[in-house]
Structure formats: C-alpha cells, structure tokens
C-alpha cells in the first residue's frame, strides 16, 4: 500500500467521524489529484482547463456528499477513482462525446499526479444557490458560506437544528444536480 493511500485513508476516516480539519485537508489533496486527472483525460478529447475545473468541483461535491458510502474495509483510492471516473463519463455523455473517448485507466491513475494550478470554474455557487428553496438557501448560506454553527443557523433561519442539517444535505445534492444540468445539451 502506498503512502498516499494510507494518508488519504486516515484523512477520510477522520472526516467520516466529523473532523472538519481532516475533511478540508482531504478535499484539498484530492482536488489536486482530481485536477491532474481531469486535465489529462480532457486534453485527449480536446477540452480546456475551465471544463476540468468544473469537473473537479463536481467531484469534490460528490465526494463530500457521498463520503458515507466509503467502506473502511476497502482501499480509498479505488473509491475516489470510481467517483472521479463516473463524473467524467457523465460529463462526456452530457456533452455528447462518445464514451469511446474515455481512455481506459487504472485506479492508481487518480493519485499518480498532483496539480496545484486551480482555475475558476464556470459557475458561481452563490448564484446557483438562489434557485433552491428558501430553507435550503438559508441553511447552506448560514452554515457553509458564513460559517455559523448549526444552532446559530437554526435561529437565523427559524428552523429546528435537525431540519437545518437535512436542508444542507438536500440542498447540496440539489446544487450538484444544478451544476450538472448547466452543461446538459
């Protein structure tokens, strides 16, 4: 087992337990791997860096939302690779490229390279947020963008704490769907 696999797996386990610092470190490291992965895959189909950055953010959001589906009995690298590849194929299908364009690759490809050169993605989360129902908007803006605690957000949005949590989860899912739909033909 490689050191990258070990370190990333430890971060993921801590993140699953609710450790915010580990979660952030995990997403930061994975986003660099994802950037290198998507740039190299998209270069072969003649697409640019901005599209790669959109995909990086879609995959980061997916990893955040689906982190409960990682089974600690398995390696983390194949899990991340499966999410990254699923989002790539979904993107290519949405943009009417044929699946034959997707190069065959191995799970280790995902941690093979690192790319720090972050670009802006083509969407603005705050603007997309406005398309969501009011309770989801309020909960996400309070907790995720303004950094309030769940209790503070519950007060600001006039909701119970558990419905703040549910609104955040559902809202981020809806947001991910909006991001994906933007590139629908």
């Amino acid at each position: 087992m490689t050191t990258a696999e070990n370190e990333l797996k430890q971060l993921m386990l801590a993140s699953q337990d609710g450790d915010a610092a580990a979660h952030r470190a995990l997403l930061e490291r994975l986003s660099r791997h994802l950037r290198a992965y998507y740039k190299s895959k998209l270069a072969r189909t003649g697409r640019g860096a901005a599209e790669a950055e959109d995909l990086v953010q879609e995959a980061v959001l997916a990893i955040h939302l689906q982190r409960h589906t990682y089974d600690p009995a398995q390696k983390l690298t194949p899990w991340v690779h499966a999410v990254a590849r699923y989002k790539l194929i979904d993107f290519l299908r949405r943009t009417r490229a044929s699946r034959a364009d997707v190069p065959i690759d191995e799970a280790d490809d995902i941690t093979a390279h690192d790319d720090h050169v972050g670009a802006e993605s083509s969407f603005d989360v705050r603007r997309l947020l406005k398309q969501l129902p009011a309770n989801m908007q309020c909960a996400i803006a309070a907790v995720k963008l303004d950094g309030l605690s769940v209790a503070e957000a519950a007060q600001r949005c006039d909701m119970s704490e558990s419905s703040v949590k549910v609104s955040i989860h559902r809202g981020l899912k809806a947001l991910a769907a909006l991001i994906a739909r933007r590139t629908e033909p």
Binding site: S15, Q16, D17, G18, D19, A20, A21, H23, R24, L27, E28, S31, R35, E53, V56, Q57, V60, L61, H64, R67, H68, Y70, D71, P72, G118, E120, S121, F123, D124, V125, V143, K144, L145, G147, L148, S149, V150, K165, L172
Partner: peptide
Amino acid sequence: MKTDDLIAALSNNVEPVDRRL
C-alpha cells in the same frame, strides 16, 4: 468560483456520517 473556496465552504461544520447506512 474557486475550488479552494468551495472546499472551505464544505468544510464548515462537518457532520459525522453513518458508515453502516
């Protein structure tokens, strides 16, 4: 939007998840 900003936002108040779900 910058990816780092997205990650910072997602890392605010991280809830523990249920691995057996």
